[in-house]
Nucleic acid binder design. Structure first.
Lengths: 231, 231
DNA sequence: CTTGATTGCGAACGGTGATCGCAATTCCAG
DNA sequence: CTGGAATTGCGATCACCGTTCGCAATCAAG
């Protein structure tokens, strides 16, 4: 009785030959779930809620999806469909950077995505298409296959982590609550107490910032350069 | 009515002046939770379960911790206490690498940690001590404070992501179930179907591998070098 | 002592993911 | 055209979750 693997969704035909035709579809369900997550966060995406939104009974959803995890898998692959894979005929680094930038804006559109990508692998067709495209960009590079996979994985992780940082420094979604001091009340006290002197110094430095887009671009570029990917 | 901030645990005194002396302690509770998580995964850490383990009623735990999230915060800071911060008087890159390697082995000891670190910030005293230590290593580097923070955050993210990759390619914890083909049954079919040619090629390449430790070291080193941290 | 804050906790609330059994529907074989 | 088989929708239900409430028991201070 093996615990269920969420990626099995992709192995199961959406609809079998006989029986009454389904009133709903994986796509419709995923879309509804997506809308809920975009507006109220991933936590609001419950089986019952999605079912109600789509106009179905709670138990009915399990005809389309074997588990809540599978629903999430559907959602992840759905947004992965927002990538555009036209080959811009550039050098490897440029093509990968392009993919990373697309990823970043997708995660901006769907704030629930970044944590998920950091946490679990997605193996849907669109996600695989992304992977394949990234590896295609690396084709001219002379590196063993697994090393290339590592590089793509790391680039994706850096992207997600960067976006996660961005998002947690911004107004949370949903009905706004009083802003309870961003850095956390507890932190400022600890800093004033004189512990963590280097931290205090680092946070005292003026933000300088510059363009966030540039910061992202250079974070990715730095990594790729270090990994030996030619410009 | 602001939603509760988990980092408030650190602002609250463990025990107030009057009243009967508590039968338990934050530390004991965190330790119990930790043991459960190490053995059965984070999902097994429920309020009821921890309470029972510690020999208390479920509702009693809320005298020590305001929410489940706070419990997790406690757990994260507890394991952050496993870092060793002796200054080895090295160059910045070496010191940061040392911290990253310690982080990696901590995450190996506590497989539930990596996803959490990627997902939410931890602000407990031990976690702050880590941050401060990393920034201390960066003291000789001439960079604006926020940039240094970025670098540390990215290094930590890369570390967590790397470990996450390692862990998902290994036998899952808990009572073993039949190994249902690591890469996912669905994947091999898609690959054989000829879609995703580059992916297929990359996975066909012999693993070469080499030492995983070396892979990690060079991943971190690459990033730091790209970010301009001197050896 | 008395007083008042604080602890432990049984019971309960509202929510969750998931399963089961059954009526209704639809397709295919004959 | 008809009868059987497979499949869908789903109400009811289970086990569990985080969390709150109210109250008896406990302890420190005045």
């Amino acid at each position: 009785m093996p615990a269920h693997d969420p990626t099995d969704v992709w192995r199961r035909p959406e609809r079998s030959a006989v029986g009454p035709k389904p009133e709903h579809s994986r796509n419709g369900i995923a879309t509804a779930a997506l809308r809920i997550a975009d507006q109220e966060g991933l936590a609001a995406v419950s089986i019952r809620r999605v079912a109600a939104t789509v106009g179905a009974g709670a138990a009915s959803l399990y005809r389309y999806v074997k588990s809540h995890d599978e629903l999430v898998e559907l959602m992840m692959d759905a947004v992965a469909g927002e990538y555009q894979f036209e080959v811009v005929g550039e050098h490897p680094r440029g093509r990968l950077l392009n993919l990373a930038q697309q990823g970043r804006s997708i995660m901006h559109r769907h704030p629930w995505l970044a944590p998920l990508l950091l946490t679990r692998p997605s193996m849907g067709p669109n996600s695989l298409r992304f992977l394949d495209s990234a590896l295609a960009a690396l084709a001219p590079v002379d590196l063993p296959g697994p090393a290339k996979l590592q590089i793509v994985a790391m680039m994706s992780a850096i992207t997600s982590a960067f976006v996660q940082n961005e998002l947690s420094s911004l107004p949370p979604a949903g009905p706004d609550e009083g802003s309870p001091a961003r850095p956390g009340q507890h932190l400022v006290e600890a800093l004033q107490a004189g512990e963590y002197p280097h931290l205090a110094a680092a946070m005292a430095g003026h933000s300088a910032a510059g363009n966030v887009d540039e910061q992202f671009t250079s974070a990715i570029t730095n990594y790729l350069a270090g990994a030996g990917i030619p410009a």
